[in-house]
Write a protein that binds this DNA or RNA. Structure first.
Lengths: 201, 201
DNA sequence: GTCTATATAACGATAGAC
DNA sequence: GTCTATCGTTATATAGAC
């Protein structure tokens, strides 16, 4: 009885790792069980089916991915420090969960409708405050005219892309793992400048 | 005999579609056979195994994805029209092959070493000419100092991200498919400005 | 080269003892 | 709640007739 929560937590932790690494289709229930160091039948005892276990993991992953970003977007910060904070948040998240962004991107494209349902259920909303902030900056003439949606997508895209494109970057620019990590560190400082400059008047 | 090439081509075309849509793990040989409108055993007759068929498709996809971009990067064009051309190339590619970018990203992360091998075999190289061009622009003081690798990654990332993040964009900004397509059209014009502005002095 | 039939293995899921 | 054993399906792959 006291083991209930622990086992369930162990399973979820293992499932998260395997699913995020391999995706739904690539993951094996046996592998999840091995990772959680429990018997395979326990997975079904706690979550009934692979699909149900996956949906739990996927929903948790969305909850992990979006709100943290939206929180920063809607925070009470000036534009420049907000961009800096946003970029930093992404890179921290990536350090803890290297497969999270690619996992979400892959799976949400496999079942777009289901994904939209999930997002609605988690109560994620348009970053209204940030949109207002951008509009205000544009009116006070420090920022050139740009669709706020473009600005948000560009900022997130610039943060995420080098993380999901790692093998490509390492290959094209002939980096090893250390050099890639060093490149990311440099980028953390450089990227906010790039973004701010892009919308300066 | 005269049917050999045609059948092989049919298989590859079908395999490309299914693999790019579902990934290696999610794809089924039966589904590829159905799509190609041939018998399932023909897949093995022509390509021996699922893995061999996949590797052919993956390599072809890389050949489809990279050289076209690198060709533009190394073309004899001034910076601004080059960026415009690059963005346009990406969006055209996406119209013809909507799943290509996400497919390459997902699969190259599943087997990074194999991916690096493939890239080397296809003879893809660092876009040296473009790097030189950026360096020249920086020295002639029209462009602020920036690591050319950052500039390249940013440009490609900004082009690719809204394509692979479509369900997210449609959800967060409450767009339907038409509105998304319209958004992309607008973006095709806006993005080069964003990029150029970002590196202006 | 193309088909049908089948081998072989893997996987998700369940039954039943403890 | 946890285990072993096993069922039922589905997947890749092959054998063999035509």
């Amino acid at each position: 009885m006291s083991e209930e929560l622990q086992t369930e937590e162990q399973i979820l932790e293992a499932a998260k790792q395997i699913f995020q690494e391999q995706g739904f289709a690539g993951a094996r229930m046996q592998e999840i069980a091995d990772e959680a160091d429990i018997n395979k039948s326990m997975l079904h005892y706690y979550f009934r089916s692979k699909d149900k276990l996956f949906q739990k993991v996927f929903q948790d992953s969305i909850r992990q991915f979006f709100p943290e970003i939206l929180k920063v977007l809607n925070a009470d910060l000036a534009l420049v420090p907000k961009i800096e904070k946003l970029v930093e948040t992404y890179y921290d998240m990536f350090k803890k969960h290297p497969h999270l962004p690619r996992f979400v991107i892959h799976e949400m494209n496999q079942h777009p409708e289901r994904f939209k349902e999930f997002v609605k259920n988690t109560g994620i909303e348009i970053p209204e405050l940030f949109v207002k902030q951008i509009r205000a900056e544009m009116e006070s003439s420090t920022m050139r005219k740009i669709d706020p949606r473009e600005f948000i997508i560009n900022t997130i895209g610039l943060s995420v892309f080098p993380l999901i494109a790692r093998p490509m970057i390492e290959t094209v620019f002939e980096m090893n793992d250390d050099q890639y990590q060093h490149f990311l560190e440099q980028r953390k400082k450089e990227l906010p400048k790039f973004i701010i400059n892009a919308v300066k008047k």
